[in-house]
Structures are given as structure tokens and as C-alpha cells.
Design a protein around this nucleic acid. Structure first.
Lengths: 171, 171
DNA sequence: ATTTTTATGTCAGCCTTGTTGACTTTCCAA
DNA sequence: TTGGAAAGTCAACAAGGCTGACATAAAAAT
């Protein structure tokens, strides 16, 4: 209802054909299908190990920011503490994650991957990166820049912050 | 383990900096965060109406290809028939989807949205398109082309087929 | 004409991962 | 010293995946 309907003509000289409902629909489907491919490889590995996608996400972000506390992780993952806690507990029990009591604020738990955790993270992200790398290589650097730009625009602004802050990569 | 590790230098003249592990990790996180934004608006609408994301997906693809049969939908959505059936049954009970017995092959059910179904589809896709349109507009046509190209490369080839066949848009 | 295969639906039961609500423990800070 | 934030726990529940088994109708093959 925030829309001007389906019939759209090119307006100014810029040609806004890429904003037609049909083009948008194709983008939406591309997101849907691509996300499936994006998660397929890690999912296969996780299934063998009695873990799920939620474990992967926790492991990923603990690996990216070692020593992060539970609250921060909660905000990044966008789930409830009860939901995260269940996942975290199994990872700690299985010796993949270590929760150290905070020094300054002893209520906080700082999360770290153990050696075994690092190893699983490696296995999962190697698989995911392999597919990503193949896609990047096939599409080329200019396409990748556009890909990243559009995705950033689709994010919740709050998450965009976490995204930009995460890691020390030279963009 | 299909990787050459983190330390990567620019090789040929082409500069393969966009293929570093760090760049790939940022792409992976971009996918994760953006997918959340991508589904946030429809999810909000669906929650009010006692439906979930699975209903949205079914409605979307029935709307895109009216008269499609259950098997095709199964292949596109990548779920089991039991899972789809549960969703489909509620949609039919609620009068959003109609299942007509096939004329040539009377085993098949051809699926159509009713007027009420079309209306919900509109509401959901308007919300989703609005965000997509804002992202497209902010990123610009060249970025959108790259976005689509990378996503296509990430898809399962089997799904890529469905993706390309779907709809009659002039790409 | 009979058998087999295909398309679909359905029942039962399981798992993961999300939710809300209530409650406790710890401990920083006003 | 007391209020409240951070963290953890327990219980109950729902959505939406999954497998397996089975039923029915109709098409296709023999």
C-alpha cells in the first residue's frame, strides 16, 4: 500500500527500469534462492555433528570478536537470551566455547572459542567461503562491490553498525 | 580445508584483493544481516495474521506461477511434502488458496490464489518491495546488476533454473 | 485386465530454534 | 544499603523443518 502500482515507465533520462516491480520481484527471489545456497554447505557439516545453524552463528561471531559478552552477541544475533543460552550451553558443555567471568564486571561472561571450537569454525567457514569465493570470482570485483552495497542498504541500521565495526579488514 | 590460508597477496595485474578471506567474511556477514532485514517487514505483518514465513513463501510462488502443481512447488521451496502440506492446508481452509483438480491429469492439484490470497500477497510483497526498492535506489543500477550476478552464482544450479524460468520479466 | 508407478494427502512423532514469563544469583553504582 | 542491570535457569509453548508409514486416485506400463 506504499506503492504506485505495477505500471511504471522510464521517467527522467536515468532510466529507472531497474526499479520496476518485476525487477524487484526477481531480486527478492534471488535473495531467497541464494540464501539457501549460502547455508547449504555448513548445514551439511553441522547435521553430521548434531549441531544446527544457530550453533554456527554463535561460533562465527565469537570467533570474529573473541571475548565478546553475551549481551553484545544477543544484539548481533537478534534472538532472546533464552534461545542463545540453550545453544551456548551445549557449546560450552561440548568444550567448543569457554565463558570466562569478567574481570572488571564479574557479572559478565566473556566468550572464547577453545581449540576445538576454532577447529569447527574453520571447517564451517572454509566450506562457506569456498562457495562465496567461487561466486565472487565468477561475478568479478565490480559485481562484488555492487553486491555488498545493496546488501548494506537492506540491513537494519542498527545491524549495519555491528557489521561495519566487526573485524579489522581494510575495506 | 580447501583453502590456501589467510595470507594472500595481489597476484596478477587484476588485483584479487576482493577474494581475500577477510573480504569473503564480510560478504558472509552481509548476507546474514541483510537477510534479516529482507524478511523483517513481511514477518511483522505475518505475525499479526497468525501466519509464518512458510506461508509467505507458498503464497509468493503460487502468485508468481498460478496453476502450478504441488510437486513443482515442492522442488522450488525445497521442503518435504508433509511440511508444505501443513502450510497449504491452512491456506486452503482459510480461503486464501484454491486447489483445482487437474484436467489432463486428475491426480494433480493446480494451485491458485483467491481474491483474499491475492490481497495478502500484495500486502506482503508491497512491504518487501518497499525495502528492496529503497536499497536499489540508494545503491544504483550498476550495484543492482552486481548484486544479482553474485546471488545467481551462489545459487544451487537446480534452483537457478527455477529462478530464470520464473516470471516473464524482460531482464 | 492387471500391475506398477506417480501425485497427493494424512497421521504420528521427532528435532531445532524461536518465543514469553517467572524466578534467582551476582554485583555495580547511586 | 538498596535498586537495578547482567546473566543464568526452568517451564511451557509454537512454527516449521524432518522421517516413516500408509491411503487413495489415476495414469502408465505390462
Amino acid at each position: 500500500m506504499a506503492d504506485r502500482g505495477t505500471a511504471q515507465q522510464p521517467t527522467s533520462g536515468e532510466s529507472l527500469l531497474f526499479l520496476t516491480d518485476d525487477q524487484l520481484r526477481r531480486g527478492i527471489e534471488a535473495m531467497f534462492f541464494a540464501y539457501r545456497g549460502f547455508t547449504a554447505d555448513p548445514d551439511r557439516i553441522l547435521a553430521e555433528k548434531e549441531y544446527g545453524r544457530a550453533h554456527h552463528r554463535a561460533i562465527h561471531f565469537i570467533n570474529r570478536s573473541p571475548g565478546t559478552n553475551v549481551n553484545t552477541l544477543l544484539a548481533i544475533l537478534g534472538v532472546t537470551k533464552q534461545s542463545l543460552n540453550r545453544v551456548l550451553r551445549t557449546l560450552i558443555e561440548d568444550g567448543l566455547v569457554e565463558a570466562r567471568v569478567g574481570k572488571r564486571d564479574r557479572r559478565e561472561r566473556h566468550l572464547y572459542l577453545t581449540d576445538a571450537g576454532v577447529e569447527l569454525e574453520r571447517e564451517l567457514s572454509d566450506a562457506q567461503r569456498a562457495r562465496m569465493r567461487a561466486a565472487y570470482r565468477a561475478a568479478g570485483p565490480e559485481a562484488v562491490a555492487g553486491f555488498r552495497l545493496v546488501l548494506e542498504q537492506m540491513m537494519d541500521p542498527e545491524l549495519l553498525r555491528h557489521y561495519r565495526e566487526g573485524g579489522e579488514g581494510q575495506t
